[in-house]
Design a binder for these strands. Structure first.
Length: 469
RNA sequence: GGCGCCAUAGCCAAGCGGUAAGGCACGGGUUUGCAAAACCCUGAUCGGCGGUUCGAAUCCGCCUGGCGCCUCCA
């Protein structure tokens, strides 16, 4: 079906993509702990895995895409207390905002969005299994995973347990058998949200929910398990330990896929550093598509350097692609397809798939799209018939869509309550131009420009757009 | 201290042994009533020093400068 290769964090090399079930992909992507609004680091992860999912689907795979919400943990409890609301209300609001923003970024909905708090049953079942097999032990209402009972511990993040022990800066909990052991279940403190369990009221630890949910929703082992690079250790390492110990099978995930982290001002962008930009701040300016293009223009595993200039640069590039992808204003005429353009479209199609097959190297695929766009614009400039260009144009739109890049004109072009007045001014100006009243027509253009409205005169008439800033 | 990653034109960024993709910006031009958009032209020998090779941005070593993980984090 394909010759796709995927970089696997665990082996640190690209491997041929072979799924558990032929033609089907089980993909689990670690979502968020909703205690604050989403920033563009989350946006990058969202888009990276959306592109992977879209491409695999395009390649004929049936993709089951699960994304979770870890909707109970210390940060959530703390934040809810600060705001004087219930943890549930906090997470509910943030999750619905997440869905809205995700949709606005043109991210396809996942197959399912399980939440930790709604999967307590499977989580408890898994913990019981781990205790029964000697991989975990209860202490005073807590349950810990016995790291040294799992020989493969450290294989994902390439660490050995003795180095970890030496470097451990964690405050040592004397009740644990070993400082490395981590919590599967935490006993509830007074006033905390809790669920009944064989060990008393409590809540799941951080890592167990993903192990339980991925197995529950994807039938045990998975093909792709993804997330940001900052999840490799300890989160995913611990997931492997729990899941493989519980399932008695390996690998838990065939391909560990991690996106590079967004950097801002030379540092990782994160909530804890406070140097983040919210996704919403980008969406409000209509720059969602530009943001996606910016992400596509760098390889997903490499840290992304984010800057305002970079975002605007992507917006300008996107505009050029949109110009190329725009349907002929006057409709299609009679003309045979242009041979040269068709040939280029075919070459671009090939380059596109070759690049994406090779570990989803979108920057190269996008470069091919730009070449096609330039050729289309050139052909139009040379006066070629719209029908002659149409096949190439359709190819451009088709391939952009595979990447989730929407090339329809920028949102808000004709929107806004002032649109009728702007239309009127533009019409008056057209009359003035017909009468060669250039001083007045230029005045209107300049004044509109001061109001962030840009005019563009074409043989077919004048168009206006709102400037993105 | 342990484990990794990165350093390519003004900025972003591909490249994975065979002679530097693409985007943005700048400058020149075509087009335009003038603009805008679009198109054309213009720019780098790849952090430094050694080594391997017929041949290296690509492999090895050292150096310098960044970054990530080891603690919550997409």
């Amino acid at each position: 079906m394909s010759s796709i290769v995927v970089y696997n964090t665990q082996s640190r090399r690209k491997e041929p993509f072979v799924t558990i079930e032929p033609g089907k992909v089980r993909m689990y992507v670690c979502g968020v702990t909703p205690y604050d609004s989403a920033h563009i680091g989350h946006g990058m992860s969202l888009i990276v895995f959306d592109v992977i999912r879209r491409y695999l689907t395009h390649r004929g795979y049936e993709v089951r895409h699960i994304q979770n919400f870890t909707d109970i943990d210390d940060k959530i409890i703390n934040r809810a207390n600060q705001e004087g609301i219930a943890a549930d209300d906090l997470t509910e609001g943030l999750i619905s905002a997440w869905h809205e923003e995700s949709a606005a970024l043109n991210v396809l909905p996942a197959t399912a969005y399980p939440r930790a708090t709604r999967e307590i049953g499977p989580i408890i079942e898994m913990i019981e299994g781990l205790i029964a097999s000697g991989h975990a032990y209860p202490v005073d209402g807590d349950v810990y995973f016995r790291v040294r009972a799992f020989p493969g511990y450290g294989k994902l993040s390439n660490r050995n347990v003795d180095d970890l022990r030496a470097g451990a800066r964690i405050e040592v909990d004397e009740r644990k058998d070993d400082p490395l052991d981590f919590a599967l279940w935490k006993a509830a403190k007074p006033g905390e949200p809790s669920w009944p369990s064989p060990w008393g009221a409590g809540r799941p630890g951080w890592h167990i929910e993903c192990s339980a949910m991925s197995s529950t929703y994807l039938d045990g082992q998975v093909d792709i398990h993804g997330g940001g690079g900052d999840l490799i250790f300890p989160h995913h390492e611990n997931e492997i330990a729990q899941s493989e110990a519980y399932l008695g099978a390996e690998p838990f995930a065939r391909y560990w896929v991690h996106n590079g982290l967004v950097r801002s001002g030379g540092e990782k962008m994160s909530k804890s550093l406070g140097n983040f930009v919210r996704i919403n701040a980008i969406l409000e300016r209509g720059l969602g598509p530009a943001f996606r293009l910016m992400i596509l223009q760098s390889q997903y595993r490499v840290p992304l350097t984010y800057s305002e200039d970079g975002l605007l640069a992507a917006e300008r590039g996107l505009d050029r692609l949109r110009t190329a992808a725009a349907p002929a204003a006057a409709g299609l005429d009679e003309a045979p397809p242009d041979a040269g353009l068709c040939q280029l479209a075919s070459t671009v199609d090939h380059r596109f798939h070759e690049a994406m097959d090779d570990d989803f190297t979108a920057p190269v695929a996008v470069a091919a799209l730009f070449d096609l766009g330039t050729a289309i614009n050139r052909a139009r400039g040379e006066g070629k018939a719209a029908a002659a260009i149409e096949p190439a144009r359709l190819k451009l739109v088709e391939l952009a869509e595979v990447l989730g890049l929407d090339l329809t004109p920028a949102a808000g072009v004709a929107g806004g309550g002032d649109a009728p007045f702007i239309d009127l001014l533009v019409r008056v100006r057209s009359e003035l131009r017909t009468a060669k009243q250039w001083q007045l027509s230029d005045l209107i253009r300049d004044e509109l420009s001061n109001l962030e409205i840009e005019l563009e005169d074409t043989p077919a008439g004048s168009n206006w757009t709102r400037r993105t800033t």
